[in-house]
């Protein structure tokens, strides 16, 4: 795509200083916890990108950096080629209007003392997007767009079901006419049938309104359904990125393979899971961070750290001994 990306992360690093266990409060050495380490991503207009990884992989820190809630310690996080942390004035207003967020905990993210009308109209009021007289009509249109009856307007959060809440959260996100939707586990904890409805809605919205979508999830099936591109994260690094279908069809990184094997599939035997759990991100050993759990690890994996290198126009991975994957047919 030749158009300028909306979001661009250039080798973003986010490190926290923590005190190690043991010793007295004053003598404990400070350790660095690298929550994000050299993350490079871009999201163009109309693109959809899934960020996939287990807990502790840095997905949430990445989100905080993208929303400008946390400053990266190194590297640059850009929104329309300007540093997100330095946005001010009209640029900042524009950022707030263009980037809409759907939170994981829909119930917790909506004020229980506000009616659905006020919740959905709040972004309209804040950005002064419509006249007072139009407010009700705009909310009606938004609610209809997400599949809710306009009568819902007078309800409160406590009277809504899980699926209805997600729809209200989506309507609220759409109210400011954003160009990017950022969603953090927006369908987790729902019944399969409700999840399917919400996923269908998100995909329709993304396609019809030409929105960019950044979807954080741990479910590869959701990523495959919603997003054209995928980035798999492990301990603060992107270990594999590329076109979702290609990556899931033939992953090059052993971690992506392990995630795929662990995802439930009809009648497949339960896979040999990875040994152990994600290690602590404090004071990581040299070499590849996945080496300790990797079935293909060789001696050089413990000394050399692989960088994310493009293997084809649509694929990139960070692994010294990747799995065989087919090159896409040249055209």
């Amino acid at each position: 795509m030749t158009t300028a990306p909306i979001f661009r992360l250039l080798d973003v690093q986010k490190a926290y200083e923590v005190r190690a266990k043991g010793g007295s409060l004053f003598t404990r050495a400070k350790r660095r916890l690298r929550a994000l380490d050299g993350v490079r991503l871009s999201l163009g207009p109309g693109e959809s990108l899934a960020i996939v990884g287990e807990s502790g992989s840095g997905k949430t820190t990445l989100l905080r950096v993208l929303l400008g809630l946390t400053q990266p310690t190194d590297g640059r996080a850009l929104f329309r080629e300007k540093d997100i942390g330095d946005l001010a004035g009209t640029d900042r207003d524009r950022f707030c209007r263009e980037v809409a967020m759907i939170y994981q905990d829909a119930r917790g993210s909506l004020n229980p003392r506000m009616s659905v009308l006020d919740l959905v109209a709040e972004p309209l009021d804040h950005h002064k997007l419509c006249a007072k007289a139009e407010r009700r009509d705009r909310v009606t249109a938004l609610l209809t767009r997400v599949g809710l009856a306009p009568e819902m307007m007078s309800r409160y959060v406590s009277a809504l079901s899980g699926g209805q809440l997600r729809r209200v959260a989506i309507a609220r996100a759409l109210a400011s006419e954003p160009s990017v939707l950022v969603a953090d586990e927006a369908v987790s904890g729902l019944d399969v049938s409700t999840q399917a409805q919400i996923l269908q809605l998100l995909r329709d919205l993304q396609r019809e309104m030409g929105l960019s979508l950044l979807f954080i999830t741990h479910d590869l099936g959701v990523a495959a359904y919603l997003c054209d591109r995928i980035a798999v994260m492990y301990l603060g690094r992107v270990v594999e990125a590329g076109a979702t279908r290609e990556v899931l069809k033939a992953p090059a990184h052993p971690y992506t393979r392990a995630l795929l094997n662990a995802s439930p599939r009809f009648f497949a035997p339960i896979s040999d899971p990875l040994p152990g759990e994600v290690p602590s991100p404090i004071d990581l050993p040299p070499g590849c961070r996945f080496a300790g759990r990797c079935v293909r690890a060789q001696s050089d994996c413990h000394t050399r750290e692989p960088a994310l290198t493009p293997a084809s126009p649509t694929r990139a991975f960070a692994c010294l001994h990747p799995l065989p994957f087919s090159e896409p047919s040249a055209h």
């Binding site: 996923l199 099936g221 495959a224 359904y225 599939r265 009809f266």
Partner: peptide, 12 residues
């Protein structure tokens, strides 16, 4: 409603 990696259409 079960998503597999090649699911094109959901029928909720």
């Amino acid at each position: 409603c079960v998503l597999e990696f090649d699911t094109e259409e959901l029928r909720p």
